[in-house]
């Protein structure tokens, strides 16, 4: 076990009094070669045999490179519903940011403005548009294996970018457009009206939202009736 000789980051670095002159150049110790080299020292040690054994087993497995489909979609959860949008339509998914109230404009669907890297974007409530209840969601997904974070997703429509909040970004997957089921002719639920199809993921049905239609109807809530 190597002992760290010079723990400058704890003394003059970001974890210490921040007096190190290199900070001007690297901003944070984690970008400084002194720190990275010290971190590399960590890997200079014998591999425990159980690691090698588990890795040996891991590496015999074939890589899962089966072509799943031609559409890349990002799946997220809103209340109990699983929804998806085309990954191409997503600008970025970020941690939840504060929403700024807009006088005379903010209503149940339009929540206000969000500062996303210096760009002010309109923030809407997707659950309100789709009529999905987010109440009691905490009890729905009490998962001890991993933490569940609320996220904000920025989506680009035909002409504009906008933001909405989701309860969890589940992940990105590829689906084939053939595997999608057409909408029932008598679609009554709002999330079916706004979706371009439904596909199945681990026995759960996921509605693929049409981002243009969603953006359009968000936009229309801003106009005076």
């Amino acid at each position: 076990m190597a002992k760290i000789k010079n723990k400058c980051w704890n003394e003059i670095g970001v974890f210490g009094d921040k007096s190190c002159e290199s900070l001007n150049e690297y901003l944070h110790c984690k970008y400084c070669p002194v720190y990275t080299n010290a971190a590399k020292e960590f890997f200079e040690r014998e591999v425990p045999p159980e690691f090698i054994n588990s890795w040996t087993l891991d590496i015999t497995r074939r890589k899962e490179t089966i072509e799943k489909g031609n559409l890349s979609v990002t799946i997220f959860r809103l209340g109990d519903e699983l929804l998806a949008v085309l990954t191409d339509a997503i600008v970025v998914a970020v941690a939840v940011k504060p929403v700024h109230f807009v006088p005379f404009r903010t209503n149940r669907t339009f929540r206000g403005l969000v500062n996303l890297d210096g760009e002010l974007l309109l923030c809407y409530s997707l659950e309100n548009l789709l009529g999905i209840s987010r109440n009691g969601r905490e009890t729905v997904e009490e998962n001890e294996d991993y933490a569940v974070y609320k996220r904000m997703i920025a989506v680009k429509g035909a002409n504009e970018k906008l933001v909405f909040e989701v309860d969890e970004v589940v992940g990105v997957t590829k689906i084939s457009s053939d595997s999608m089921t057409e909408l029932p002719a008598t679609a009554k639920k709002a999330d079916e009206i706004f979706s371009q199809g439904i596909f199945h993921l681990n026995d759960k049905s996921v509605a693929l939202l049409d981002e243009h239609r969603v953006c359009e109807s968000f936009r229309s809530t801003l106009k005076f009736q």
């Binding site: 590399k40 960590f42 890997f43 200079e44 040690r45 014998e46 591999v47 090698i52």
Partner: peptide, 11 residues
């Protein structure tokens, strides 16, 4: 170099 590689984490 005719030395055996050490079985380290970085190997």
């Amino acid at each position: 170099m005719s030395f055996q590689t050490k079985m380290y984490l970085s190997t």
